[in-house]
Amino acid sequence: MCGFRLNERLEADSRLVSILGLCQLRLMNDRRWPWLLLIPQRAEAEEIYHLTPLDQTLLTFEAGETARALKRVTDCSKINIGALGNQVRQLHVHVVARNPGDIGWPGPVWGVGNAEPYDTNGANELISAIIKEL
């Protein structure tokens, strides 16, 4: 974690859920979709190939476990996983629970309307449920 610093926008747009082996796990503050972020705690990592092979493996494992926990908690139809980085260059992986009929279905969640922030209780309940499943 030496030299790692969380991007200001990621910090402002999300809440810490847990620190995993490699990543910070964070909840995006948009209740329209249960939406988690995995942020590898490695300085200057912008792309997956910037990680060591071992860290790439750990990121894949943590993404899978996060997706499994999110599926169990939300009972969603589909889990979307993606690493874009077009607006925030710091490497981060989105893990989003999706259902037919949600706003923007079947398209991506990016750029659809305006975020609807969680109230404190709603965020804390989802965070607790995710932690329990992990």
Rank of each mutant, 00 (worst) to 15 (best):
P117R: 09
R42F: 01
V88I: 15
I79D: 05
A123N: 04
D119R: 09
E65A: 14
Q41P: 10
G122L: 11
H92R: 08
P40S: 01
I48T: 09
T52N: 06
P53N: 11
G107M: 07
N86R: 03
E44W: 07
R89V: 15
A97P: 09
V109H: 02
N121I: 13
K71L: 14
G104L: 07
E44I: 09
T52E: 04
A83S: 15
T60C: 12
R89E: 12
R98D: 02
P117D: 12
E47H: 00
V109G: 08
A97N: 06
P108M: 08
E116P: 11
G122T: 14
L70P: 01
A45G: 10
G122H: 07
E65D: 11
G64M: 04
D55G: 09
I127L: 02
T74I: 04
A115N: 00
V95M: 00
P117G: 13
D102N: 09
Y49W: 11
Y49P: 11
G107F: 02
E46C: 13
G64K: 00
Y118T: 04
V93K: 01
S77Q: 14
L126Y: 04
I127K: 01
T120A: 13
A115E: 08
T74H: 00
G111N: 08
N99H: 13
R42M: 10
E47M: 06
D119L: 01
F61E: 15
I79H: 09
A129M: 09
H92G: 11
A129S: 11
C76Y: 00
L70I: 06
Y118N: 03
